[in-house]
Design a binder for these strands. Structure first.
Length: 1047
RNA sequence: GCCGGUGUGGCGGAAUUGGCAGACGCGACGGAUUCAAAAUCCGUUUCUCGCAAGAGAGUGUGGGUUCGAGUCCCUCCACCGGCACCA
């Protein structure tokens, strides 16, 4: 009876489905066991693509399945669900191209992918399967949107609260609104303004209904605003910043994108910057992913500083321009200011003679798309406004420019320019001849200054001077010299006997680059003159021909009240900010890069907003009772590709039947919101729905959510609860994972969920890569049609390959992520047909570490397939079908091997290092080949260890073993090992002489150091090597090795 | 440019805290079985020199720390990923 994987796999997949063994019971349901610990292991759910899965997709799914099965064996109650992220641009594009309604194509694709996934024997609880396009699902997506719409962010508590509470606070005057929109609490006793309100505050009672509504609406977490959006004419929709690539194109489809102002739904994610950043400390995620999120959030600490406008500049403007800077310590070096072209104060500061030039520049900047800007690189452009401001620390009058290297979207849209210590300001100052003033001496600059003060500039030739300086600076930086006199003398002494070879000490950091630049300067005979001219005048100039952005020590930084001179950068920042605060000129400020999330799309295939627009501009939330707002059935759902700047885009839903578009409430006719939500909406919360997918009352039942999401705290570990293991690709590092965290935190603030974070542990699997082939024209050809000259398919060739051909044409072999576009996809179906899914699972796991990208090589699959066949033959007599198992206990050696293997496999499973788990099982199995009959004890342990990895063959063998007493394999338990069995009576020591292995000795494992050494000295080969040499030192690493140091 | 990751035989990869580099698999080579082939089984397989015993070299480069470095520190290089005028 041979190993018939097809029959075995079909049999067990049917049995599992029929018995529902993988169904996870919620609290209160039949079969729920409150004593079991829970484990929630989740895959990033896929988008149901028309071409189905290739072997790259299931990599993560197989891994989570192994974890799920392993955890079940350890006695956990495991939640392991699967679903589909089915809304979005890709599905709609596919439908448009094929002329079929997206719901049809989506359903068809889901059916196909579900079939493919089931074939892999993945132990999902299919009863919980969902798609974001299910009406019963997106009803709750809309419901969550209403929560966002119905909430505001209270900065005092740093959390979201229901909007009704804001209304109450305003109405009862426990909170006031200032004209700039700031919310303030009532002033302390004695400081009230007229009528008990703060000076300048807007009185709620005096506002009209419209004004009140505007105040409230502008503070919601979901709000409408006219913003410069990323408009993609080809896709006919707005895109999020995260959906636009660096070169100004759409991530989906690679179409051009440009900015245009449009009124859009926005989500106020920026209010959560602080918590999104800080709470990364609570989760167990890969550090690189955390870092990417941190960079995206972009927290900077700095200061806000007001620069008053100089007399004769402003006509009717406010008196000051506010800037944000991370380097307030360089304030004395600010020699000009720059406003973004769109800055509201530009008009006010512009002088009449400059007005035409400023207008022209503004117009030009507005017209330039991001792609154009990119093409121009970092060349600085700008125009002088004619206006001046006053540097508050030294009362200097400095010019105000506008330039597009300052952006309105970050900070205040205005900067103070410190060309000496910021490379962009430096480039701008160079271009326009603006003054540059050093106010921070970095270690390199300090050393150069010290050199210039000591060297005999008049009497030494230029080349020698340069060489001396490089030596001197190198010495000072490398050895952190503070006694410059001694250092200078050392250099002179060295020069006497040494020829010039390079900077003293090892080449490190700053000195290496100075060294390179100087050598270059020497070489080209440029720069030296400049350098020496400056040195002779007692000035210091940077050798690097760029701003010195490193931290250092302040110089030239003092006024009558405050001096930063001599202070290191961190201290200087602190002192100057304190001074500014005291004088009311500035304050400490934390700034983030993250912008609010543009949340509407002008597309059909998305969740409709539960929002109505009234005739007077009222924005009204749909009553909860009226959810869901179903997507209307439409024949023509194509987007309108348009780029008419005067006409707002018409989303497809504008063509929906009037019966859908208009709703009458209390005699008022409302029009529905015609935009739809972006694809991210559905994936923001699906992990919650999986806890309780059929709940009609709530988006997730409270008890189910608590049970699956809250995990017990481990001592000393940062802890946020949430999904216990979330596995997916790193491509979602900032998009999905940031958006989900944001929604989750809002739901947490509003008391709808129990944990501050959605995903307690994240694991990024690598990609599966594969060779792909291009012909002479650079056109990719299908990988399976490529062969060598003799016609052998490329997949079967060795790695050192002969020239390859596609239908006679020579092709080039390249390497990339597997997929449709590279024409190198291999489907799991073809592998399952040929080898079975157990082999497929083992192969993908055996390929290498899960978190690394690795090369798919069909030829190698045979290795793990042979392993399974050998396992089968170790258990079953292929002739008779008889079980080759004995009840005799195993021999001592086999038993020790078994226990060592159990330890290795257990450790590997815990570390998710499935490749090494499989290697250990192969070794054990190979050691058993020679045995006539397998001891039952070994056979049982082996099957248990194999079962998470190759569950079908394991189940079959388990059944043949008689189920070890009626136990289902899933609950059979994971084998344990005995520490004592890991130790051998004797141990082999490699003996090193001066670190080289010269022989090995066998000693009892409890031998002490002297005994080990004595044994080594008796060894013939070792003795020969020691002959005539003196033993200086002996190192014995217990149980590991012996090293004899001789002289 | 900045940030992050990776670099080990012909190939994929292994190597708790620094302790025998190359586990395991693929491929290749040799052998057994077979009329033959497939399949299977046994053996060899980092490189160089050597009939051999053995010797030497070796984890991208160069240096350092250490009795001892794939592992720690510094430097440079290559490839992959992210960000990119963020003040």
């Amino acid at each position: 009876m041979r190993y018939d994987f097809a029959a075995i796999e079909a049999k067990w997949q049917q049995r599992w489905a029929a018995s529902g063994v993988f169904r996870a019971a919620n609290p209160g349901e039949a079969g729920f066991d409150p004593d079991k610990p829970k484990f929630y292991v989740l895959d990033m759910f896929p988008y149901p693509s028309g071409v189905g899965l290739h072997v790259g997709h299931p990599l993560g799914y197989i891994a989570t399945d192994i974890v799920a099965r392993y955890k079940r064996m350890l006695g956990f109650s495991v939640l392991h669900p699967m679903g589909y992220d089915a809304f979005g641009l890709a599905a709609e594009q596919f439908a448009v191209e094929h002329g079929v309604h997206p719901r049809q194509t989506t359903e068809k694709n889901i059916a196909n992918m579900t079939r493919q996934l089931k074939r892999l024997g993945l132990s999902y609880d299919w009863d919980r399967a969902l798609a974001t396009t299910d009406v019963g699902y997106y009803k709750w997506t809309q419901w969550i949107f209403l929560r966002l719409h119905g909430a505001w962010f209270d900065p005092a508590r740093n959390k979201a609260r229901p909007i009704a509470e804001l209304e109450q606070l305003l109405e009862s005057e426990r909170l006031y609104i200032m004209p700039d929109g700031e919310l303030i609490e009532p002033p302390a006793q004695g400081l009230e303004g007229i009528g008990g309100t703060p000076f300048g505050a807007i009185r709620w009672q005096e506002l009209t209904v419209h004004q009140r509504r505007a105040v409230i609406d502008s503070r919601r977490l979901a709000y409408m605003d006219e913003v410069a959006v990323n408009w993609c004419p080809a896709l006919g929709t707005v895109l999020a910043n995260e959906e636009v690539t660096n070169d100004g194109r759409s991530e989906r489809g690679n179409y051009p994108v440009h900015r245009r102002p449009l009124k859009q739904w926005m989500l106020r994610i920026t209010k959560y910057c602080d918590r999104l950043e800080r709470d990364l400390d609570l989760v167990d995620w890969p550090e690189p992913i955390k870092l990417m999120q941190r960079n995206w959030i972009g927290r900077s600490e700095g200061a806000r500083v007001d620069f008053p406008l100089a007399y004769g500049t402003a006509k009717d403007a406010q008196e000051a321009i506010t800037v944000f800077t991370t380097r307030p310590d360089t304030l004395f070096g600010a020699t000009y200011m720059v406003l973004a072209p769109e800055h509201p104060l530009v008009d006010a500061v512009t002088s009449d003679p400059q007005r035409a030039a400023v207008r022209a520049y503004q117009k030009q900047a507005a017209a330039r798309s991001d792609a154009d800007r990119q093409a121009e690189g970092k060349t600085k452009t700008g125009v002088f406004t004619g206006g001046h401001a006053v540097n508050p620390v030294n009362n200097e009058r400095i010019p105000i420019w506008i330039a597009d290297y300052v952006m309105m979207g970050y900070g205040t849209g205005a900067i103070m320019a410190v060309p000496a210590h910021d490379s962009r300001d430096f480039a701008f100052a160079k271009t326009f001849g603006l003054p540059i003033r050093d106010v921070v001496y970095t270690p390199a600059l300090t050393a150069i200054a010290a050199f210039a003060a000591r060297a005999d500039l008049a009497a030494t030739d230029e080349k020698t001077l340069c060489e001396q300086m490089v030596d001197f600076v190198g010495l000072c930086i490398n050895q952190q010299v503070s006694d410059f006199d001694a250092a200078y003398q050392a250099i002179l002494r060295r020069r006497e006997k040494d020829t010039f070879g390079g900077p003293l000490g090892s080449n490190r950091g700053a000195i290496a680059s100075i060294w390179q630049d100087t050598v270059k300067a020497l070489h080209e005979s440029v720069g030296i003159a400049r350098l020496l001219a400056a040195a002779r005048k007692g000035e210091v100039i940077s050798l690097l021909d760029d701003a010195e952005t490193e931290h250092g020590v302040n110089v030239n930084s003092a006024n009558e009240e405050v001096s930063l001179n001599g202070l290191p950068t961190a201290q200087a920042k602190h002192v100057i900010v304190e001074w500014l605060e005291k004088r009311g000129l500035g304050r400490k400020q934390i700034q983030y890069k993250l912008r609010d999330w543009i949340f509407s799309r002008q597309r059909y295939w998305g969740e409709p907003f539960p929002i109505l627009h009234g005739p007077d501009g009222e924005v009204r939330a749909v009553d909860e009772a009226d959810l869901p707002v179903e997507l209307p059935a439409m024949e023509d759902f194509k987007p309108e590709a348009s780029d008419d700047p005067s006409a707002p885009p018409r989303p497809p839903l504008a063509r929906a039947p009037e019966s859908w578009r208009y709703v009458e409430i209390d005699g008022v006719r409302y029009e529905r919101e015609l935009n739809t939500m972006p694809q991210w909406a559905g994936s923001c919360w699906y992990y919650l729905r999986f806890c309780d997918p059929n709940n009609d009352e709530r988006f997730v039942g409270r008890e189910a959510e608590r049970y699956w999401m809250v995990s017990p705290k481990k001592d000393g570990q940062p802890h946020a609860g949430g999904v216990d293991l979330y596995v997916g690709g790193a491509e979602h590092a900032v998009l999905h994972l940031l958006y989900s965290r944001f929604w989750h935190k809002v739901l947490y603030d509003l008391g709808e969920v129990s944990t501050p974070e959605p995903f307690g542990r994240l694991f990024n699997q690598g990609y599966i890569q594969a060779y792909y082939y291009e012909d002479a024209r650079g056109v990719r050809v299908p990988a399976e049609e490529v062969a060598d000259a003799s016609g052998t398919p490329a997949a079967e060739l060795q790695d050192q390959i002969a020239p390859l051909f596609h239908h006679g044409q020579p092709v080039k072999r390249l390497y990339g992520k597997m997929g449709k576009s590279l024409k190198n996809a291999v489907t799991p179906d073809e592998i399952c047909d040929q080898y079975g899914c157990d082999t497929m699972r083992l192969y993908e796991m055996y390929l290498g570490p899960l978190d690394q990208s690795k090369l798919w090589n069909t030829r190698d699959i045979i290795g793990v397939h042979r392993f399974l066949q050998r396992v089968w033959r170790n258990f079953v007599n292929e002739e008779t079908g008889a079980l080759l198992v004995t009840d005799e206990p195993p021999g001592d050696e086999i038993r020790r091997l078994l226990h060592r293997t159990i330890k290795r496999v257990t450790d590997s499973m815990n570390a998710m290092a499935f490749n090494t788990a499989i290697a250990a099982l192969i070794e054990l199995n190979n050691a058993l080949v020679s045995a006539e009959r397998l001891p039952r004890e070994v056979a049982q342990a082996m099957v248990r260890m194999l079962s998470p990895l190759a569950p079908h063959i394991a189940e079959e063998l388990w059944e043949k073993l008689g189920r070890a007493g009626e136990e289902a394999l899933m609950t059979a338990g994971w084998p344990g090992y005995d520490e004592v069995m890991l130790l051998d009576a004797e141990v082999v020591y490699p003996v090193q002489i001066n670190g080289k292995v010269r022989g090995r000795i066998t000693v009892p494992s409890d031998a002490d150091e002297d005994a080990v050494l004595a044994a080594a000295q008796q060894d013939e080969q070792i003795a020969r090597n020691l002959e005539g040499k003196q033993v200086r030192k002996v190192i014995v690493v217990k149980g590991k090795l012996l090293n004899i140091v001789v002289g």
